[in-house]
Design a protein around this nucleic acid. Structure first.
Length: 424
RNA sequence: GGAAGCGUGGCAGAGUGGACGAAUGCGCCGCACUUGAAAUGCGGUAAGCUGUUAAAGGCUUCAGAGGUUCGAAUCCUCUCGCUUCCGCCA
């Protein structure tokens, strides 16, 4: 959510934001609704003021005088009720529009129509070379690799869990826990507080993070009107909802594990094989609440991106970082980097991480504030980034570490968790 | 799933129809005292909207929504949450 005052003072900026993000949003219509809202609000408040003073006077009256005064106020109240009804209707319309107003992207966000227009900002490592020594063979895809090594069972996955269902098994299950444990330990060492977050979450945290109202096709809903979160960002941002934090407690840096659920409604035909796009997976997510300052947001954005890169580097998985173009940004995001890991069988990079900052877009919706040094109450800034997503990360991990005989070398940093050097 | 109770400012906790945006304490801020600190004393200290150069003023908010009333923190209904007891359960 944006501040309506900000919108009124920066009409062009908000219009430009909608254009750049390729979001259909009528700013002029919002202003028109806001004008009507303010006019009615003023009327209603004047009437309420009259009613309040009249009621106060009644308290000191008695007898006929009192009865006359009561009758007088009754008439006023009827009028007031009508106006209040009208105001309520306008306010609802206003709020619905406000929830759909896009946050303004950073000037450094490139123009573009889709993720194809994202721009590479840096690269780490080289795409693993196959076809010449020491890897004089054609790389297998992760599905073949994993099935031969007994790390995954997709057929029974579909039998039991339906389309996009899967079982991780054997060293596949061990490896999944190993990367997550490694990641959690690494971030905890850096001072991020570890969490296991709920996935069954109420609607308000989805509205607050900006996943709703416009994304409802993406989200599973239960018969108890709870939703299944597609990321720990949702419960973790809800964690401080309606709170006033102290400035000295900022930044809040959290690292949260959660099961994640996504309907993938818009991508029925996409990535139908393997373990890339799933309805259910596990993720460890970084969440940061910091002071309401652009530079502070930028600093943390770079830092949580670097944190994830450090983990990729420790795992020695070649990757690149792209800055997402306007159309690939969500409603609330100011700027987003994706980390993409090299996938040998695809001969291209595939997205594994997503790092965003929002300024106060989310905290305004969630009412997360803090008291600054001058005693002023301000909305905090929020950010989040994937630390590791499982099983997706296993795709590039296994493919890059595969050997000619179909076995897979275990990355050094994970060996202590698996108790072996090679998966065979 | 059954029964009972509770939800008030940053926190604790009074308040059962008008004098209550709300006692008191803690915390926080300022001042005084002190070489400094502690202790003590005095004063200040909720949020949002509206308005304004700034203010004054006005409106709203006592979990949320609705209702009764001229008037609601207080009475009624529903929802949400919390606590305790019973049942069930990894």
């Amino acid at each position: 959510m944006l501040d309506i005052k900000f919108i009124r003072e920066h009409l062009d900026l908000v219009k430009e934001a909608a254009r750049k993000k390729r979001i259909d949003f009528d700013v002029d219509k919002l202003i028109e609704v806001d004008d009507r809202r303010l006019k009615l609000l003023k009327e209603v408040e004047e009437m309420r003021a009259r009613q309040n003073t009249a009621s106060d006077k009644i308290a000191q009256m008695s007898g006929d005088e009192r009865q006359d005064a009561i009758n007088e106020v009754k008439k006023l109240k009827e009028e007031l009720t009508t106006s209040e009804g009208a105001l309520k209707i306008i306010e609802k319309e206003w709020e619905e529009m406000m929830l759909l107003a896009p946050n303004v992207p950073d000037p450094s966000v490139p123009e573009g129509e889709s993720d194809a227009d994202n721009v590479e900002v840096r690269k780490w490592g080289e795409p693993t070379k196959f076809g010449s020594p020491p890897r004089d063979f054609e790389p297998k895809g992760h599905i073949e690799l994993m099935e031969k090594l007994g790390l995954v069972d997709l057929e029974r996955g579909a039998k039991v869990a339906g389309f996009r269902g899967y079982f991780l098994k054997g060293d596949g299950a061990m490896l999944a826990f190993a990367v997550m444990q490694f990641t959690l330990e690494k971030l905890a060492e850096q001072g991020f507080e570890p969490f296991i977050a709920p996935s069954l979450v109420r609607e308000d945290s989805f509205l607050g993070t900006g996943w709703l109202p416009q994304g409802k096709d993406e989200i599973y809903k239960t018969q108890d009107d709870l939703y299944l979160a597609g990321t720990a960002e949702v419960p973790m941002m809800g964690f401080h909802k309606d709170e006033i934090l102290r400035e000295e407690d900022l930044p809040k840096t959290y690292v949260a594990f959660s099961p994640c659920f996504r309907r993938e409604a818009g991508s029925y035909g996409k990535d139908t094989k393997g373990i890339y796009r799933l309805h259910e997976f596990m993720k460890i997510e970084q969440i940061v609440l910091c002071e309401a300052d652009h530079q502070e947001s930028v600093k943390w954005h770079e830092e949580i991106t670097r944190n994830s890169e450090n983990i990729m580097q420790a795992l020695k998985i070649p990757y690149r970082v792209v800055v997402n173009c306007g159309a690939d940004l969500g409603l609330g995001q100011v700027k987003k980097y994706d980390i993409e890991a090299w996938v040998p069988s695809w001969k291209r990079y595939g997205e594994t991480h997503s790092s965003s900052y929002f300024h106060d877009f989310q905290t305004r919706r969630l009412n997360i504030r803090y008291k600054d040094k001058e005693g002023k109450i301000r909305f905090a800034h929020s950010l989040n980034n994937t630390a590791i997503a499982v099983p997706r990360i296993l795709i590039s991990l296994l493919e890059n570490y595969q050997q000619k005989d179909g076995t897979v070398i275990v990355p050094e940093v994970l060996r202590k968790y698996l108790g072996k050097d090679i998966i065979s």
